[in-house]
Design a protein around this nucleic acid. Structure first.
Length: 422
RNA sequence: GGAGAGGUGGCUGAGUGGUUGAAAGCGCUCCCCUGCUAAGGGAGUAUGUGGUAAUACCGCAUCGAGGGUUCGAAUCCCUCCCUCUCCGCCA
């Protein structure tokens, strides 16, 4: 959620910033909602104040054995008026909150202006793009060829956009996960968390997936009401410190968590139908940081380089891009995407998205810290370190030979019984 | 799943309809006193939000959550969530 003060006192600044995202801020609706809110709230609270006063008078009158009939009549009248105003206030509040929750985050000043991913700023290309003297296979073919993937059986058991990993691919997936976790924990100073994969509605509102992106979530039926499968570990991990005032000495908090992620992929019908690039379920190792606001910029650089380290150690060619204002996510203020080279597609594909949410999530979640006696909102950040499924695809495709054999990156071999070839 | 007991401020813990936003103690902050230490005295110590430029002032809300009764609810009623104990079941 964006800062209400800013909305009330610097509306033009907010509007022009959001217009970079092609978000059209409805000024007249906002003005109406805000005026109503102010009006109704002032009315409501003054009735409440009046009611409190009379209630006290009745109390003391009763003690003195004075007559309270007149006071009671007056109180009844106020009580009725209050009820009506309260109803109006609450009706307005629902719309008001909904409006606020649907406003995306302000973008950082350094974010390039643009409409789509075409306009993202390419910062660096790292590693060598492989050249093959044969026509490279895609990862689906390679997975099947090496008896490591079964798409048909997954569809039979579940539905499309699911896969079964077998044998060495299943092992590769497990090895990658361990390798990523160990690297972040041992070399980069992250603390590991194991978290729930099913979360409540409030958690998704807190990190920004709800109310706007409900159709992207997997909702499940439960006696407790609305529950959801997590779309990313960002949700449970960032929510870990919801409603807390963190000690400034404890910041920056750095967490890593491995979880499956579930996405409905509604509306992505023609996209990436082949292979494991876009699945309903995939494994991811996620990095999350909670920082003092002064530290979030440098922490984003660190977090991104921590994710890059994984790609470097795996010797995968990738590039780093800064997302433009038209491509950046709803809650993010600044995002670096890491994109890995996929030979079969002859292009780079996202494998990690590292974002500084600044106080956008912290405001919804009430994650604060003390700063010279003041209580201020923290900043939250997250990024994949990395998406395991896409890493598997990248390894298969980049390290294949003419016969379809795949060389396993050296750093993984100790996790795979020293196997060298898949 | 069955039976019972509970959820109050940073913590412990009083409080069953009327100056209770909340006693008391602990902790914490500041001040005073005392060669040091220990002990003692005094003051202060929740969060959110609104009117506001304001960390000035005034108000409102919050005693697990949401409803209800009432002029008035931490206190009464309903629903839900959570915790603990015992039994059952289970990896």
């Amino acid at each position: 959620m964006i800062d209400l003060d800013l909305l009330r006192n610097n509306l033009e600044e907010v509007k022009s910033n959001l217009s970079k995202r092609a978000f059209d801020f409805d000024t007249s609706l906002w003005n109406e909602l805000e005026e109503n809110r102010k009006d109704l709230q002032v009315q409501m609270e003054s009735y409440q104040a009046e009611q409190n006063t009379i209630a006290k008078e009745i109390g003391s009158a009763q003690k003195n054995k004075d007559s309270i009939e007149d006071l009671k009549a007056k109180a009844s009248e106020i009580s009725n008026k209050l009820k009506k105003v309260k109803e109006k206030f609450q009706t307005n509040k629902i719309e008001y909150d909904d409006f606020l929750l649907s406003i995306p985050n302000l973008v950082d000043a350094s974010v390039p202006q643009g409409k789509s991913e075409e306009d993202n700023e390419i910062l660096e290309e790292i590693g060598e793009i492989p050249s093959f003297n044969f026509s490279p296979k895609d990862h689906q073919e390679l997975g099947i060829l090496n008896d490591g993937m079964d798409f048909k059986a997954a569809v039979k058991i579940s539905k499309s956009r699911f896969v079964i990993f077998k044998n060495s691919i299943a092992l590769l997936s497990r090895a990658l996960t361990q390798f990523m976790l160990n690297t972040h924990i041992n070399d980069h100073g992250y603390k590991e968390l194991y978290v729930p994969f099913i979360v409540n509605k409030d958690s998704l509102i807190g990190t920004g997936q709800l109310p706007k992106f409900k159709e992207d979530q997997f909702q499940i039926t439960d006696d407790d009401g609305e529950m959801y499968l997590i779309p990313t570990a960002e949700v449970p991990v960032t929510n870990y410190h919801k409603d807390e005032i963190l000690k400034s000495d404890d910041l920056t908090l750095s967490y890593v968590a491995h979880t499956p992620c579930f996405r409905s992929e509604a509306g992505s019908y023609g996209l990436d139908t082949k292979g494991i690039i876009r699945q309903h379920q995939f494994e991811k190792v996620e990095l999350v940081k909670i920082t003092h606001p002064d530290k979030s910029s440098e922490e984003l650089e660190k977090l991104t380089s921590n994710a890059e380290t994984i790609l470097k150690l795996l010797e995968l060619p990738y590039r780093k891009v800064k997302l433009c204002s038209g491509d950046i996510g709803f809650g993010s203020s600044l995002t670096y995407d890491l994109e890995v080279w996929l030979p079969s597609q002859n292009r780079y594909r996202e494998i990690s998205s590292c974002s500084n949410y600044k106080d956008f999530q912290a405001r919804r979640l009430k994650i604060r810290t003390e700063d010279n006696g003041d209580k201020i909102l923290c900043h939250t950040l997250n990024g994949s370190g990395l998406a395991v499924g896409r890493t598997i695809a990248a390894i298969l495709e980049n390290f294949q030979d003419a016969s379809g054999k795949v060389t396993i990156p050296e750093v993984l071999r100790s996790y795979m019984n020293n196997q060298e070839i898949l």
